[in-house]
Amino acid sequence: MGDLIDKLIFLGIAAGSLLVIALLHVAYLTYAERKIIGRMQQRLGPNRVGPRGLLQPIADMVKLLTKEDLVPYGVDKPVFYIAPFISLVCAGTGVALIPIWKKFVLSNINVGILFILALSSLSAYGVILSGWASNSRYALLGGLRASAQVISYEIAMSLALLSVVLMAGSLNLMDIVKAQINSPYKIYLIPQIIAFYVFIISAIAECNRVPFDLPEAETELVAGYFVEYSAMRFAIFYLAEYFGMVVMSALAVTCFLGGWIGPFEIPYIPFFWFLIKLYIILFIYIWVRATLPRYRYDQLMGLGWKVLIPVAIINLFLTAVLKLIF
């Protein structure tokens, strides 16, 4: 019994600290995004709260906590209340599955990749339910667009990850990183550059980011599916979106960039290379947002169904044949 309690306490500390670190990343990702886009557009970005605006995310949080929580009339109340939590849990749980270091992964399950894909599919529910429950036309259209987009790019993304699974011969994320280290290439980015390209594009679409931000297109749908949400419920959708970005980037680092390994060991900071790679991918997200205009909806569906899926299937079979020959 005492043993069990010890384990529970240990789990509580590990899970709690992982959650706090993930939340810090999410909070400062919003800050980094505003700052970097500001610089790219020759503005300063946030610079009033704290030195260089570093306390901006905390100030935003406090502001959102003290706002009025509005529930418009005509909404489907239970669904309206539940939807943000579905989004948050589905977007954030993936963090627990990512092997951050060879000795640290909170939940080392055998079907890690499948679980993350399942979670990202489920997050479509949060979007479509909030769109349907809001009793607003903008929200309904945003929710429909988002769900069609998420399921379309889900296929391309699973196919891209399938090539990685085929090379590693395992669905366990830890085994995939180890297989990469033991392979002659060290990281799967080199042989699987096409899969990486497909994965990054679909990951951007899955997170509803520019240039695929049709669900929340400000100029036509105001904010899309969460237009009727206010205060903390709105913030939870926001949190879920950035959590999704962090998890997708971490998955890209794990599956394509070799996880925790680096060219040389950094003493005392075992997570160093993982974090550096994570920040590079997150920077690409922000860079893309600052650079590209929004797609049209037919172009978006065309890219997903007519370009990415055939490319991913061809890459998969190419990988299989090459692996058998060599």
Binding site: K7, L19, E68, D69, L88, G92, T93, A96, L97, I109
Partner: peptide, 30 residues
């Protein structure tokens, strides 16, 4: 303590965090 237990524990932690934030908002908000 299975790996799946850890996973669901983390999911539960996220849910509790979300509910706490909304509850705090309902108390603090006008």
């Amino acid at each position: 303590m299975g790996s799946y237990f850890n996973l669901f524990f983390f999911a539960l932690l996220l849910l509790v965090l979300g509910i706490l934030l909304v509850a705090l908002n309902l108390i603090l908000g006008p």
